[in-house]
Design a binder for these strands. Structure first.
Lengths: 112, 112
DNA sequence: AAAAAGGTCAACCAATCGGTTGAATATGCC
DNA sequence: GGCATATTCAACCGATTGGTTGACCTTTTT
């Protein structure tokens, strides 16, 4: 269990990997497509995906020559629960959540 | 913001640092007392505390020659919210939370 | 004043990390 | 069969990490 918290938090600590997770939030993707928006090599992205898969944050399934990457949001549950054990904080702050989603361009900008 | 998520998740990725946070959940502690249960040097613990402080997870206040360490649970909020953006998962699973707390000896074992 | 206690600093070390490149391995297409 | 596509592997590199030790500074105690 400590080991899994290690791998999950380590995986989440890198901005490239968090960006990949955000991308996968919209749809499953092939490795090459995941790599496309980044400046780094395909091999580097492949390694990041392996770290995410080891942490259980994504799953990868090979169909033909294409390896599909799929978000596994359930794997965040344990880490989320661990964090909540420190929580005199509201587990769901809708305003803050909205801001985060907007920052990630997952929802449209606020009307002015 | 990305930078802060980096520092928070990086800080949480180390088991020693998570253990320190758990200890501070019970009460504020001096650096020496934080170090006591661990096998490593005081200097090593001092570094870990610095990482936690940089992430905003704890605050440190020096009174006399003693530096007191205090948990700052609010700093987990942003990371928690980020994680919830992936959440088709229940943000508060009480049974799971209870198990986690028990594993950390923060609440007594279940009656049998 | 001298000694003890609480912490940090600086230098060092081995291991890990995040990246690169080039070769290798499958798979799909003509 | 032969070429292009999708992905990983292996070796390498510099930077960071997690730890050590010994010296140092500050504060309290005697």
């Amino acid at each position: 269990m400590t080991q899994t918290l290690d791998t999950v938090f380590t995986a989440l600590a890198d901005p490239t990997r968090r960006a990949i997770l955000s991308m996968l939030l919209e749809d499953d993707m092939a490795v090459t497509d995941v790599a496309e928006p980044f400046q780094m090599s395909l091999a580097a992205i492949s390694k990041h995906l392996q770290v995410l898969a080891d942490a259980g944050l994504i799953s990868q399934e090979k169909r033909g020559r294409v390896k599909w990457c799929k978000l596994e949001p359930d794997s965040l549950r344990m880490a989320s629960v661990w964090m909540q054990s420190f929580g005199q904080f509201d587990p769901l702050d809708l305003d803050l959540l909205e801001g985060v989603l907007r920052d990630q361009d997952l929802i449209p900008p606020e009307e002015v």
